[in-house]
Amino acid sequence: MRNIICFSVTAFILALSIRAAAQPAAFTVLYTNSLEGVTFSREGGNEQRIFAGVRLPLDGQLRLVDGTQARLLYENKKINLEGPGLYAMTDLKRKAEQEVSSGFLTRFWSFISNSIKDTDNAEQVEKYHRRYLTNARAGINGFAERNFAIGAPTYLSQALDHPDVVFRWDSTAHPQGYHFTITPRNGQEPVFTAVAREEQLSVRLDELLLDSSQVYVWKVTALQKDSTMLESNTYPFIYQPDMDAYLTGLKESHAYRQLAEEEQELYLLYQLEEDGYLHYAYRRYQELSTQDKPESGLYKKLFATFLARMDALEEAKSLVK
């Protein structure tokens, strides 16, 4: 009898611990706009791409590169995410739980009170037409990219891992100097501003106390003599100083281990670019192409094509020369 009780208790504890370790899937991915650039990883684990229909556990983090979107479902609450960004699943869970959906009575009251407020009839629209002029618009946005007077290489966007980053941009007239700012993407107040006389500025990102889950944008403007302003595009980035987990995961992946040593380096470079670690890839190319090794010529050529893809044509040309 005693043995049976002991066995039952052990089995119960074991079942509980297995259940706890199994971590049931909590999130369901409803939609991603791209199969590339939306990845999930557990701590110390490999990054795996995710797509609609996949269920995700609570322990881990989701990474979206620039331009990607994902929609998750957690306990009937939809969560829309946009890249670039690194999202801990526990944070998403907390946000979803904090979101209080209004009850039927609140929605009913809101509908009734809005009905009382929104009583505008056609005569009112005619009489006070300017008040209503912004409610409707006939036309579409053009599909062309806006031309910015100041260009910059795109490897200075997405994930920046180095504590000291040299931001660069194209030269233009700058009688008052260049005005450089770093601002949270969803915020107004810059976290860093500086005036630079040259076309580059070294910034210690580790001293800015940046939040690794927050997206920031950097931008350069140059005030002209005629008071017009030349400006660059805004370049979004996240500051992610810890690359170890990512690199370990990548190097432990089946695809990586199957390759020969020289192929592994190429795969690493390719994957870094695919996953948005552009600045790391840039530094790695730089390092490999300046080594005193026979294959550095190949890396130099690869580096030049990488720079061309990163809108850094002048830098690519100077490398090839």
């Binding site: 609609a52 229909g53 939809k78």
Partner: peptide, 11 residues
Amino acid sequence: RTDYIHHTQEN
């Protein structure tokens, strides 16, 4: 439609 799992044929 946004409440359902959605894929493209291409995917």
